[in-house]
Simulated assay, not measured.
Amino acid sequence: MDLSPEQRITLHGFNNLTKSLSFNMYDICYTRTKEEREAYIEYIDEVYNADRLTKILTHVSDIIGAHVLNIAKQDYVPQGASVTVLVSEGPIVEVPDESYDESPGPLPDSVVLQLDKSHITVHTYPEYHPDEGISTFRADIDVSTCGEISPLKALNYLIHSFDTDIMTIDYRVRGFTRDIQGHKLFIDHEISSIQNYIPDDVKELFDLIDVNIYQENIFHTKCKLKKFDINNYLFGYTKEKLNEDEVEEITERLKSEMDEIFYGKNIQGH
């Protein structure tokens, strides 16, 4: 498929392709006691409350050139939050060449492009192990657009908006649009990997795995932090307060938790 330069393709009517980005992130923490777990969840609920999440999604709408129509937000009891933003097309300007490049998006600058019939959502899930020890914060963000730009341009900003240990990212293009001769276009931009939309300095921090189905315009990337420092996973104290056996046990539990989330399966013996 050779669509370059895509901005020179004249479409019959509006671009009806639906492009969907799903960004799923995890933050892992070791909490020794019920009190530590409750304090961690309270901290997460404060840092990622509905108001803060609304600001993040509003920046996303700016990046992809959307006009916010409506915002619904909710903080839940005992924990978690959700925000849904309905957006429509913003002012139409000349499409910059870089909007089609496989490259990271802004952090953030306003990119105003044509967009319609779209939405952005986020749901958070503070979770914990029933035997204490492991607490997990998960956020799921979906950006669905119809128009001239891929929501992948918001990925760079989303990555920088969360403190994440593991990321699972999905991108898919559905439907079709037509050029003026009536030929169907099932995708309007070149893409070989979601990784091309992640800055190099970020990719250096993670182990990455791709699972792509090119003929179906389905792209999947998983990321897990390479460097492990136990102090980054202790809530309210450092490893100096632990003996060697405790450090070894906690390290094993944390790494096992991260591996199970990253590979999507339970690991025997844990």
Rank of each mutant, 00 (worst) to 15 (best):
A81C: 03
H123V: 12
A66G: 15
G90A: 08
P91I: 02
D109F: 11
L107A: 13
I120C: 01
V122P: 04
E98R: 13
A72N: 12
S99N: 06
V87K: 03
T121W: 00
L107Y: 13
V95M: 14
E132Q: 09
L115F: 06
P126M: 11
V85D: 02
S103N: 10
V87D: 03
D116L: 08
L107M: 13
T121L: 01
L57G: 00
A66H: 11
L86P: 00
T84P: 01
L86F: 02
V95A: 11
Y76C: 03
I120G: 01
E89V: 04
V60M: 05
S99D: 10
P78D: 11
D97G: 04
H67E: 15
H59A: 15
Y100V: 02
D131C: 07
S110D: 14
H129C: 06
T121N: 05
V85S: 02
V77S: 14
D109C: 05
P96V: 14
P96T: 10
V60H: 03
Y125K: 08
Y125N: 11
H119I: 05
V111S: 01
Q79L: 03
S61Y: 02
Y128N: 11
G90Q: 05
A72L: 14
S82K: 11
T84I: 13
H119Y: 12
Q74W: 08
H67T: 15
D97W: 12
H123L: 11
S88M: 10
L86T: 00
H67M: 15
E132L: 14
V83I: 09
E102N: 02
H119M: 05
D116W: 11
V83C: 04
H67Y: 15
S88F: 09
E94P: 05
P106G: 10
S110V: 15
D75I: 10
D109W: 09
K117R: 09
L57R: 01
H123F: 12
I120Q: 05
Q74D: 06
L115R: 05
D116P: 00
K73E: 00
P78E: 09
G65V: 00
Q79E: 06
P108Q: 15
G90F: 07
H67F: 15
A66I: 07
A66P: 09
S99Q: 06
P96L: 13
V85W: 00
S82I: 03
Q79I: 03
Y76V: 07
E102F: 04
E98L: 14
P126L: 13
S88D: 12
T124R: 02
S118Y: 06
I64C: 10
D75A: 14
D75S: 15
D97R: 13
D62Y: 10
P91K: 14
K73S: 09
N70M: 11
D101M: 12
N70I: 06
L69H: 08
V112G: 01
V60Y: 09
V111T: 08
T121S: 05
H123W: 10
I71N: 05
E98I: 13
D131H: 12
L115Q: 04
L86Q: 08
E94A: 12
P126C: 13
S118I: 07
V68M: 12
V93K: 07
E127F: 04
N70S: 08
G105E: 03
P108Y: 15
S82D: 06
V95H: 14
Y125P: 02
E94S: 13
H129E: 14
Q79G: 03
D116C: 07
V87F: 04
V95I: 14
L57P: 05
Y128G: 08
V93W: 01
L57Q: 02
E132S: 08
E102D: 07
S99M: 11
V93A: 00
D62V: 04
E98K: 13
